[in-house]
Design a protein around this nucleic acid. Structure first.
Lengths: 254, 254
DNA sequence: GGTAATTTGTCCGTATGTATT
DNA sequence: CAATACATACGGACAAATTAC
């Protein structure tokens, strides 16, 4: 059976560092990344791992479950635990630009302000901005057009902290992106930022400006920028009608 | 303590229907949805649930863990298990740390084949695959479900070179991703690959399987994998209904 | 501020079920 | 059919976080 050199010591977890199963999880993950367990291989059986690490099967399974949630392995009864991804993969290199390009707006477009107003965060908006309810924001609603043909490619809702707005140029069609303006004028740099991409619909008001049917499909891109205090100071919500925009990524091996 | 009315019966799981913890998981989820445990409330303690359902703490925790993965509750030591949402957000968020991960499929999902057929490339399909018209392809149509709740999160159309198909497992719901299988079985590695993200609509046939309205908005993700000769050997077209899926990127300065 | 009680987190050992080979 | 490997389940013990007093 599992056994244990010293029969005593069911004592407790008696932490010898990090939590036991995370230690095992990490060790196995490193082995997978280093190629000790190549893609398609089976990990040692749970019993084997038990004796190797000197822990119970429960603990081994806890580690294996987490690796499965990360998408590295897949356990199948009667077969074993198979490596289905090594994370590192064959190290693809992005041919286009850097990852940060996602944070920027497409070149060759101009912003056209529709309206600027002050708002208090409703519960919905607060959730969207990750801020507290009733905090104050400046809300810019704008249209983004292709410079060449003037075709509208997206609707923009941008929320900025009011104290940052005074020196900004929200109206200018040729103006720099808000993020750049804030960096230049106030010296604020985003410490954390995130991009979310999802499907959505065109509202009736957006439909008028974008010249598409209300309720039709759209690509939604939400960008959030947070400062050193972890608070969001700028968030944008772009709505791209179907067929007018797509994000493309190219990868080349090595 | 936990006790048990009849001391006997550690016998086994002795399935009286579905797996025990899923039964408990479902019962608790329904109570949360019905408002028996309102938002912000604490669920009964684990010991209480043990005696209520007549199961061990292990089983109760298994159910609670799954509810946590669905985002309904949050367990905190010393506090309890708090209801943080009253309805499962039938959505799935894939958080990416590098653009390369776009090439992989989200963990925690299973593929369920609907149909496999041989097709000749029409002009439309040829353009999509970047191949010549009338070339032969194996077309897999499948559904991708959340492993935890079985909710369908996307429709998959995959096109594979027929000569690669023989040794592949297209049906298996738990099988490795097609890209991995091709790497393992044939040793083909993608030299170039691309990902395109755009807005689209749900077809009527997809609507039936995805349980959404036909014509509603969707996020479309197209992945193409090319070998050393520059020819596409695998292309996938995923359709994610609005609200069921989003791609998230997190960036951190240094 | 400290202590006790409560609640979840971690871990062990064991037993049996189920799927695959 | 038998062996193997993962899946589910039980019950007990102690650790750690939080809260209430």
């Amino acid at each position: 059976m599992i056994k244990s050199t010293e029969k005593v010591r069911p004592k407790a977890a008696s932490r010898k560092g990090p939590i036991l199963y995370t230690r095992i999880e990490q060790e196995l993950r490193e082995e997978i990344e280093r190629g000790v367990h190549p893609l398609g291989d089976r990990l040692p059986g749970e019993h084997a791992l038990c004796s190797r690490f000197g822990v119970s099967r429960f603990t081994v399974r806890q580690a294996i479950r987490r690796l499965g949630e990360e998408g590295l392995i897949e356990a199948r009864p009667g077969v074993g635990t198979v490596v289905i991804a090594t994370r590192k993969r064959d190290s693809f290199v992005q041919t286009l630009n850097s990852v940060e390009e996602l944070l920027q707006y497409p070149a060759g477009t101009v912003r056209e302000a529709i309206e600027v107003r002050q708002v208090l965060a409703t519960p919905d908006l607060a959730e969207f901005l990750h801020c507290s309810v009733a905090s104050r924001w400046t809300w810019l609603r704008a249209l983004r057009r292709l410079q060449s043909t003037q075709i509208p490619i997206s609707w923009l809702d941008a929320y900025v902290l009011p104290e940052l707005v005074d020196a900004l140029d929200l109206e200018s069609s040729a103006g720099a992106p808000l993020l750049r303006q804030i960096e230049e004028v106030h010296g604020w740099h985003a410490v954390e930022s995130s991009v979310a991409i999802m499907a959505g619909r065109i509202s009736s008001e957006q439909a008028e400006h974008l010249l598409v049917e209300a309720g039709s499909a759209a690509l939604i891109i939400v960008r959030r920028y947070r400062g050193q205090d972890g608070e969001t100071y700028l968030a944008t919500h772009s709505t791209h009608p179907e067929g007018r925009f797509s994000l493309n990524f190219e990868f080349e091996k090595r």
